[in-house]
Design a protein around this nucleic acid. Structure first.
Lengths: 241, 241
DNA sequence: CGCCATATTGATCGGGGTCAACGGCTGTGG
DNA sequence: CCACAGCCGTTGACCCCGATCAATATGGCG
């Protein structure tokens, strides 16, 4: 089903039993396509299942009354977009597809069963919701304290790293990032015009080139340093949970 | 032990058994005092227990190399400050006391035992880490999109609401908020000087008065409207989890 | 009484927002 | 096959919120 999900789960805890992975895999519904810019989960709703991205990109966001919008997370293949709705019940934000996606869902009933009978898998799922929270803390740090170029550099480092976990990118190689500058700006909390100027500045400094949906990192060391990027918060290491 | 913690847990799920609450309560170590501005958990550490605030205030934060600092959460009586370190293992940020506090801890061994044998309590603990994440999303929305006065209004509404859950405040009554303007600024991601001007503006608009550590909300309706505050994200309702 | 943290206010600066115009690419319908 | 619309990226001009620097209260505490 979702190879990416299983790869992601196993990468953080190889001691998780095959049986647990199999049960999860068997509980996932059939993959279904979603066009770009379509709602996947709505704020205020009470989902009865949780959804995984099988391919494509999606984001969480909240909006203010006058239309100001803030992205709260970017999600790619292997990511649960609303696993937290299982313990929380009510969605406090919305999720929308950014590109054409395929998605797959697991019933909350099955999650209930997992929490009732598979403590290890439960802890691993819990952990993954907390990795999302750790990412959120970085985004808050970046939004609150970093300049736009530092912030952009950090987000690109983060996405590049997360994509490597599910084999959507390789170190040193250009990778596909199918986001418009407007969408990127909503993630950073800056205007589209300023995204453009920021990317121009990165180009001028020979840090990276982002053109036609392809990011080529020219100077990884300088980029990482500018971003003060340290992937510890992504909990990439394998460890019994 | 920590009455506030038990009150907080029960308030979101009254169907949680007395036995579960009792076990948790029995697992908590003795309360111990911590002076103001003392580290409670350090970034990069691997805690072997998780800590609850019994009284006083603490915060999470991350710092950039040049000293810029961002608060990532504010915690009061009844809050776990590092429950997420149980599934995540390594701290991705630090926690420090803001006022004199008393704190109490539970061994990760006991949490392991809870996840192995008490699915219901496990889900409730999971939920509480996710409420922290929901709060984080609001902070990101505020930091990214709201003006300083809207942001300040939102944070004050949030803290007032959270304090009511553990009886540290009552609707309509002034309440104690023992934070300096500098600390408040680190939470909002704005400079101390601007915090002062923002609070002056709120006073001038007859929204609230904050003096000598006491906040008096003069116009709750206007404040809530300015903040676009909707407490849904705090999952305050009682519901089986 | 003097010290140090905190609160307040003024003056000036700058990062990023806003508004506006233009070019390029793609899809679509006449 | 071309005209046109629409989205996206790019650039220029100007403005404003909040940062920074600096000086002055204020007040708790040894």
């Amino acid at each position: 089903m979702s190879v990416h999900l299983l790869r992601k789960l196993a990468s953080r805890d190889r001691s998780l039993s095959q049986k647990s992975l199999q049960f999860l895999s068997d509980s996932m519904g059939a993959a279904r396509p979603v066009a770009a810019n379509r709602p996947i989960v709505r704020v205020g709703s009470r989902p009865r299942q949780s959804t995984v991205i099988v391919s494509g990109w999606a984001c969480r966001y909240s909006m203010l009354a006058d239309g100001r919008r803030q992205m709260l997370g970017l999600h790619l293949a292997g990511d649960f977009v609303d696993l937290h709705s299982f313990p929380l019940k009510v969605m406090d934000h919305s999720v929308v597809s950014l590109t054409a996606c395929t998605i797959s869902s697991i019933e909350h009933e099955s999650l209930q069963q997992i929490t009732d009978s598979d403590p290890h898998l439960t802890r691993v799922l819990w952990m993954h919701t907390l990795i999302d929270a750790a990412i959120l803390r970085r985004w808050l740090l970046s939004t609150g304290q970093r300049s736009s170029i530092e912030h952009a550099a950090h987000l690109i480092c983060e996405l590049h790293t997360r994509m490597q976990v599910v084999d959507l990118a390789a170190p040193g190689a250009p990778f596909e990032l199918p986001l418009s500058q407007q969408q990127f700006g909503e993630a950073l909390g800056i205007s589209t015009v300023h995204v453009n100027r920021t990317l121009a500045e990165m180009r001028a400094r020979n840090l990276l080139v982002w053109r036609g949906g392809i990011v080529e990192i020219l100077d990884p060391a300088a980029l990482t340093k500018l971003a003060e990027f340290d992937p510890t918060y992504l909990s990439l290491h394998d460890e019994p949970r």
